[in-house]
Design a protein around this nucleic acid. Structure first.
Lengths: 210, 210
DNA sequence: GTATATTTTAAACATTCGTTTTAATTTAGA
DNA sequence: TCTAAATTAAAACGAATGTTTAAAATATAC
């Protein structure tokens, strides 16, 4: 039967694509409703406000991604010894699974996360901490087991450096991929950047603190 | 005699502070002219447009920073062997010298750079490449000498990861410093973050490519 | 000192944005 | 089928933005 796509879903899908490509603030409700083929007012009718729409778009992914990530962490926690590389590799499978949410789910999600952090820093941090605090604590615990010599405050900073790298890469990803393709003749798919990213951040986290 | 501060300079100083604190797009011309105590229209009279004002603010720092950085690179190039850590340490002194431009020059500059990259990616990249291409080529040469085993394309990506880390750290710096101070009781001055950053990025660049 | 050029000022302009309103239309329940 | 609720539609609102205009004020040159 496959019931016809509802207005709410049309908005979510159009918003997600535009948000991932141009950011939240750069995308207007008129662009979204035009792309979705619905009336402008329906966003406020179904979601209440633009901010609530943004949150709904993020939630659709986070509710799939976070439990999957937690599962990976719990699996890794069984190991007798852990290193940073293994912790970051935990992100791969949950990220891949986002393809079930939407065709380009993995790419979209990272891009959304990047813009969310860059544009509305405080809100996203608070949302993640209140809704998925357990996963974040697990991440911290894993990182500490992987690097017990690093002080908590130094680990705090390095984890945010990691986040920064991820965020920036996704936000400026299309432009960088274009340059890389032009300069080196090597075109990198969006979902392959994480293969270049993980060794880098693992190396950074494991670096000696001078 | 210390001639009275001209309108143009008043605008530049007010704009710089507000840009560094809230970003370019988040800062309106009315905020700037109000803070500077000048008329709204004087921005367009003296600079032509907001975009030109942004460029003027950035240029004031880049024209001091880039030649100083080039000097450091040329000094390092004389060494028989080079490692990544030494390359990144080259940024310290030029950054410190920005205090001569303005009281909080070093902090402002990094913050501006962060916002510039996050908000108007293409423009800044193009501006830097056309005006300071020689310095950027020197940086690439230095990094290649420090890590000859890394392919050019991999080095390209890692350098942009580094930039991303820097950018993000500065943009979300105030919020992060606040959290760190609250959670760990350790308050870090803005200009001290770079001490935590350099080992991280050096470790990331030197990581083995799996 | 006067005329010219430069700068400052106040006001309005033209867009764009998220949101609200009000009426029309569709859907669902009795 | 009739009625009430839910949804869609068109239009306008109110606020904010960068920019332009045209007159007033100031500084500069002869």
């Amino acid at each position: 039967m496959a019931k016809r796509e509802t207005t709410k879903d049309k908005i979510l899908n159009a918003a997600e694509t535009l948000f991932a490509e141009h950011g939240f603030e750069q995308t207007s409700l008129r662009q979204i409703t035009s792309e979705a083929g619905v009336n402008l007012a329906s966003v406020n009718y179904h979601f209440g406000s633009k901010k609530a729409l943004i949150q709904a778009v993020m939630a659709r992914y986070l509710e799939v991604f976070m439990p999957a990530l937690q599962g990976q962490f719990e699996l890794l926690a069984l190991q007798p010894s852990i290193n940073s590389r293994q912790v970051f590799d935990c992100f791969r499978e949950p990220l891949r699974q986002l393809a079930s949410v939407r065709k380009h789910g993995p790419t979209y999600f990272l891009s959304l996360l990047g813009f969310a952090y860059a544009e509305i820093q405080g809100h996203l941090r608070r949302y993640i901490m209140t809704h998925f605090g357990e996963v974040m604590q697990l991440l911290q615990a894993m990182m500490h087991r992987a690097n017990p010599n690093l002080s908590p405050v130094d680990m705090f900073w390095r984890l945010h450096f990691v986040l920064g790298t991820l965020v920036f890469t996704q936000v400026s990803g299309p432009a960088l991929r274009e340059i890389a393709a032009a300069d080196f003749g090597e075109s990198v798919r969006a979902d392959q950047i994480i293969d270049k990213l993980i060794p880098f951040v693992a190396g950074g986290v494991d670096a000696a603190m001078v």
